[in-house]
Nucleic acid binder design. Structure first.
Length: 399
DNA sequence: TCTGGGGTCCTAGGACCC
DNA sequence: TCTGGGGTCCTAGGACCC
């Protein structure tokens, strides 16, 4: 019996925002289009051909491409298009892991008998996205997530690239190190300084050398990727770990009242989104960018998770107040707020002694739930039982 | 290129506990 | 009195991704 070979598809919509605009406004098709106001959020392939890319300033983009058409973003339309595409992903396989609004991994390993070979599945996926949603999508197929993602990027635009099992290193090693997921400008520079420009050269290095160059985390990560070792499964259960919002302020001087008004707006936006998502959070993070573009973060962890506007506002105000002297001298060009340590708003844990027989104690626990939430059954209810141990006498200094 | 807005993950030190 | 290891939580910064 043949072992089922892992087959992962990475699907990535091309120039997503710009493609939605060209789909919805036929006069934009075939033209250099960017989405965004002051800054390019997305560029069509026609614009990219002039060297326009994100996150370039609008002025620089116009200098490169005099006939550039700039359109304001319509986020609602992008969210809707994304939902339609993800619906097709989920009809293809239940094993879908979304990475962003326009990108996902699909595990199609177990589908050979039902839907055919991975390449046939990917071809059909691309056809459906084109016919049903009107967008071009690039697809990479490989045995690992990492390589599937590299393949879809190499296959762009509107391409399909499969890396057949056994040929991975032949494909990978000639590529420039910048293609590796997790290699940005800083890591690329460190490697270049040592004459390393290709993935193959990285693969020739012993792991300890990479660790010495880049630190334990990055070094080991990069070593594994260069040898195409990536054991991560497609994870369907990922949840958001933070919710935030930020606002650039330009360069003008700001009064403390101005800043407070911005802060109120941020807290209002973020807390609304938390309530809509049924999430509460414990850690409030204030993000600052100063006149010289250096950045700082300040955080505070609350005793209890919350989604209440006033509680969050008070916490972030306290954080901001402590920074006012520096803001006065250096100026501030960005304020951001994000809430982390997120929890499900409707989950509650109660730990109460219960010997497994005394029904009254269980009722007492449920009464506490009732008192706090006005109901004894909220969404999914899970009862976790742990054996009750007699309280052992504790002596100080001993475990 | 004078610089958006949304995120993720990792590291490191200090406090605190056992 | 001094010494030790391991774990978790909190805070801050930084690299990276789309």
């Amino acid at each position: 019996m043949p072992v089922t070979e892992t087959a992962i598809i990475h699907a990535d919509l091309d120039s997503f925002y710009a493609s939605v605009e060209q789909r919805d406004h036929p006069h934009l098709r075939g033209k250099p289009v960017v989405v965004g106001g002051g800054v390019v959020l997305a560029a069509s392939y026609e614009a990219k051909a002039f060297g326009v890319h994100t996150p370039m300033g609008g002025r620089a983009a116009r200098a490169l491409c005099p006939n550039l058409i700039e359109v304001p973003p319509r986020f609602d339309a992008y969210v809707e298009a994304s939902k339609a595409v993800f619906a097709i992903f989920k009809e293809t396989t239940p094993l879908v892991e979304g990475l962003s609004i326009d990108e996902a991994f699909l595990d199609v390993s177990g589908l050979r008998r039902v839907s055919g070979e991975p390449r046939a599945i990917a071809t059909e996926l691309r056809r459906r996205v084109r016919d049903e949603v009107g967008l071009a999508i690039s697809v990479g197929i490989a045995r690992t997530k990492f390589l599937a993602k590299v393949a879809s990027a190499v296959g762009k635009p509107d391409g399909l690239l499969e890396v057949p099992p056994g040929t991975e290193l032949d494909f990978l090693h000639p590529l420039p190190v910048e293609r590796l997921w997790g290699v940005g400008p800083v890591t690329a520079r460190k490697l270049h300084e040592r004459g390393i420009t290709t993935v193959g050269q990285v693969a020739e290095l012993p792991e300890p050398s990479l660790v010495g160059m880049l630190g334990a985390g990055s070094g080991r990560h990069l070593f594994a990727l260069a040898h195409n070792r990536d054991p991560r499964r497609v994870d369907t259960g990922r949840r958001r770990r933070s919710i935030g919002s930020q606002q650039a302020l330009g360069r003008g001087p700001r009064s403390v009242d101005d800043l407070d008004a911005v802060l109120v707006g941020l807290v209002d936006r973020v807390s609304r989104r938390m309530r809509k998502a049924d999430r509460v959070g414990r850690t409030v993070v204030l993000r600052l960018r100063f006149g010289d573009f250096t950045r700082a973060t300040r955080s505070h962890t609350l005793a209890e998770a919350t989604d209440e506007t006033l509680v969050l506002l008070q916490a972030v105000r306290t954080l901001l107040r402590a920074e006012i002297p520096r803001l006065r001298t250096d100026g501030v060009t960005l304020l951001g707020l994000s809430i982390t340590n997120l929890q499900d708003a409707k989950a509650v844990q109660l730990a109460l002694p219960f010997d497994g027989k005394d029904r009254r104690r269980l009722d007492a626990a449920l009464d506490q739930v009732q008192a706090r939430f006005g109901t004894k059954a909220i969404g999914r209810t899970t009862l976790v039982a742990r054996p009750l141990r007699p309280e052992a006498p504790r002596l100080p200094g001993h475990d």
